[in-house]
Amino acid sequence: MAVNVLLNILQQGLCYALVALGVYISYKILNFPDLTVDSSFPLGGVVCIGLIQVGCPYILAIIVAFIAGASAGLITAFLHLKFKINNLLSGIITMTALLSINIALSKGRTLIPYNDNKTLFNNNLTSHFAFNQYSSAITNIIILIIIVIALKLILDLFFKTKRGFMLRAVGDNEQMSVSLGSNSGLYKLLGLCLANGIVGVAGAIYSQYMRYFDNTSGTGMVVIALASVIIGTGIFRKSLIIKGTTSVIIGALIYTASLNIVIAIGVPSTYLKLFMALIFAIVLIINNYLPDKKRGKRKMEDISNA
């Protein structure tokens, strides 16, 4: 029982960590609370399963899921930048529109199984690792760890480049990025495409891990991702060694663990979303009362005490 719960937490948590890494870019780096995620997640899944079922290799399907997610981010960015629609509303518009698109792409089915199609977690290589009842879960975990760490390292490298610096600056102080001669809108567009592209990949990988595509899997994904980001960056807010990307992965694992524990102690899964929201609210409340929170903008009296 306990082992199964732990293995579940790790598998789910690592999938959510991928989403959290995407949302880390939009929410934490760009300071853009992007609700597109609830729909770009299943979009990645439906694109992936659709391609795999017509014989596309699963790696290619994941890459196309990235492009699909990035396109969703592009639409949100376009609505916000071109037509000056508020950031939350831009995300809501894209998210709502995509609900229909996702249903159309899944031809109206809520659940689509992968059956015997080859996936990341079910291929010639993974079939060699079948020793006992836990080996499939452990194989999944190893594959997910490799993907999550690879993505984390790529993002860490990107944030050290000039373009990565400018992306951070746009989220941190847009006026300064303009003063440095940069078109801040283009960077927001880049960040939102990247964020939703990663979320699309996460949706694709999540569906492969579940072995079926679930059209409702995106509901609440924004909450899961934001909670992961806020828990992670909240815990390690003072650390100079732990990077933001590492902290959101740990945040995702902690949030998933707390949800699974709620279920394990016997709360009916009907109330899962209720507890999802409840834990998120608790996280936000704790976060607001954390001592000496570093704020970007300081009060005027601090400024004059030069």
Binding site: F165, R168, A169, D172, N173, Q175, M176, S179, K294, G296, K297, R298, I303
Partner: peptide, 10 residues
């Protein structure tokens, strides 16, 4: 405003 010319979290 001194916070406008620099990026505070960098």
């Amino acid at each position: 405003d001194p916070s406008r010319g620099t990026s505070p979290n960098m």
